[in-house]
């Protein structure tokens, strides 16, 4: 796919209900802008995110996927984010090996009070993905327009 100046990446953000989704709400009510390319999916906990969901997103044409959860030690369910961290470490290194660059995936801890951090994270992530251009690996060509 040719990269044009107006190209907009598709970015999926998985946010846990207790910290990061609330952090995104705080970013919203504080009017802290970040690009509209980011679309948030709410999950109860970062540990609910199956690596399969991330593979699916890339398959369907996502250019970047970010997973946000509570800070280590602050998980609403005590240990969920630790599982998420381990799973994502493995998944992301495998994706990197397959050619989905490291910059297209990220795990970030954002608390309910960190609206500023949420906005900054999304801004920097989108900028990174824009720099990398469209994701061509893993993408199901039948899904492309």
């Amino acid at each position: 796919m040719p990269v044009t100046e107006n190209w907009k990446p598709t970015i999926v953000a998985f946010c846990c209900n207790w910290c990061s989704y609330a952090g995104a709400d705080l970013a919203g009510s504080s009017r802290l802008a970040y690009p509209a390319d980011v679309k948030i999916i709410k999950v109860p906990c970062s540990c609910r995110v199956n690596p399969m969901f991330i593979l699916r997103a890339f398959e369907k044409g996502a250019d970047g996927v970010i997973l946000c959860g509570c800070h280590p030690g602050d998980c609403h369910y005590s240990t969920g984010n630790y599982y998420a961290r381990r799973r994502m470490t493995l998944l992301f290194s495998m994706l990197d090996y397959l050619g989905v660059e490291d910059g297209r995936t990220r795990v970030e801890w954002v608390s309910a009070a960190e609206g500023v951090k949420f906005s900054e994270t999304m801004n920097s992530f989108v900028e990174k993905v824009r720099g990398l251009g469209p994701n061509v690996r893993l993408g199901d060509l039948r899904c492309r327009n």
């Binding site: 906990c45 609910r48 969920g80 599982y83």
Partner: peptide
């Protein structure tokens, strides 16, 4: 309802009501 078990389950038998695999995949799609 954290869902830790759903991802750990190797046979995909465990699912979370209200945040099922199919629901989240539908959102991703």
């Amino acid at each position: 309802g954290c869902g830790a078990c759903t991802v750990t389950c190797p046979s995909g038998a465990m699912d979370l009501q209200g945040f099922s695999n199919r629901q989240i995949i539908a959102e991703v799609d």
